[in-house]
């Protein structure tokens, strides 16, 4: 039981980075960006390919992150410069990236269990015998860096512009900001984080799989929504903490559900999709109710 909780926390921390990336597009930029699915797999593909080719894990993880940002740039370019609707732009990137990921990997799955990863490095450094113990320490460290970094970033002039673009692009253009730039920057930030998450999850799992991003958006959304339900009053710091806790809770639910007899691991995506659909429907209904009351 204890080890189930530990592994849920470890995985929750690594997947939380994905959820934070989803939050940036879905909640801040107001874009449903499907690039995320393939960016998550891209992170795994790049990190695994780099590591088996002898590149140090830390550098490999950075390369994976930058790769995700590049994918976000492509989607942003398709959307803002070529005027392709954001949903379709994301679908195009996602589809194209699937082939690119296979090209990068050369096959559908790369095992990493014989190689040094960021997690084995961290375990050596911290003197842990098991890599999984190092995951929590590393996960918390990465989470702290990301949370502090994002709080700083979204309180800069440029950060304000991204937030304003998401809620009112007419306003931000009227104030002299090129909203194409802010949208592209937001997508790069989001998909960079998502690829980072994919890279860390691959190193944790001990393999990269070209299909590992399937359903990632829904998993990320589930964490975002669980976080929002727990912490209703939101400033940005609380929101981010909520997402991380949401991600851990989601992993605990997964662990509990999979241990029951009637739901198997294969049913998890359906289960998650239903939960997310109900949760979003409920927040929409509440919203409508409070609107009616006001008028």
């Amino acid at each position: 039981m204890n080890s189930i909780i530990i592994s849920a926390i470890s995985q929750g921390l690594l997947w939380a980075i994905l959820a934070i990336g989803i939050h940036i597009t879905y909640r801040i930029l107001n874009i449903s960006d499907l690039t995320s699915e393939s960016a998550f797999a891209l992170g795994g593909a790049l990190v695994a390919t780099c590591i088996v080719n002898g590149i140090p894990p830390l550098l490999a993880t950075l390369i994976a992150t930058l790769g995700g940002s590049l994918a976000g740039f492509v989607t942003g370019f398709l959307h803002t410069k070529l005027k392709i609707p954001s949903l379709l732009a994301g679908i195009l990137s996602m589809t194209g990236l699937y082939s690119i990921n296979l090209r990068i990997m050369g096959k559908a799955n790369i095992p990493l269990n014989m190689d040094d990863t960021l997690l084995t490095n961290a375990a050596d450094l911290l003197g842990f015998t098991r890599d999984r113990d190092a995951t929590i320490v590393l996960g918390i460290l990465v989470a702290i860096i990301i949370v502090l970094g994002l709080i700083w970033f979204f309180n800069t002039e440029f950060g304000f512009s991204i937030i304003a673009t998401g809620s009112n692009d007419q306003m931000i253009r009227a104030n002299g900001v090129n909203s194409n730039v802010t949208i592209i920057a937001g997508l790069m930030l989001s998909n960079g984080l998502i690829a980072l998450s994919g890279a860390l999850v691959s190193q944790y799992n001990g393999y990269a799989d070209v299909g590992q991003g399937i359903g990632a958006i829904v998993v990320g959304l589930a964490s975002v929504i669980i976080g929002e339900v727990i912490f209703k009053n939101k400033n940005f710091f609380i929101t981010l903490i909520g997402i991380i806790i949401g991600s851990i809770i989601y992993r605990l639910i997964v662990a509990l559900v999979i241990n029951t007899d009637f739901i198997s691991a294969n049913d998890m995506r359906l289960f998650t999709a239903i939960i997310v659909a109900i949760a979003i429907a409920m927040t929409n209904l509440n919203f409508r109710k409070s609107k009616v009351k006001r008028s």
């Binding site: 970033f153 309180n155 800069t156 002039e157 440029f158 950060g159 304000f160 512009s161 304003a164 306003m171 931000i172 104030n175 002299g176 900001v177």
Partner: peptide, 14 residues
Amino acid sequence: IAKRRGKIRTLRKG
């Protein structure tokens, strides 16, 4: 944001 109308947005404090 309005105070910076027409200026480049940097990574300085908003």
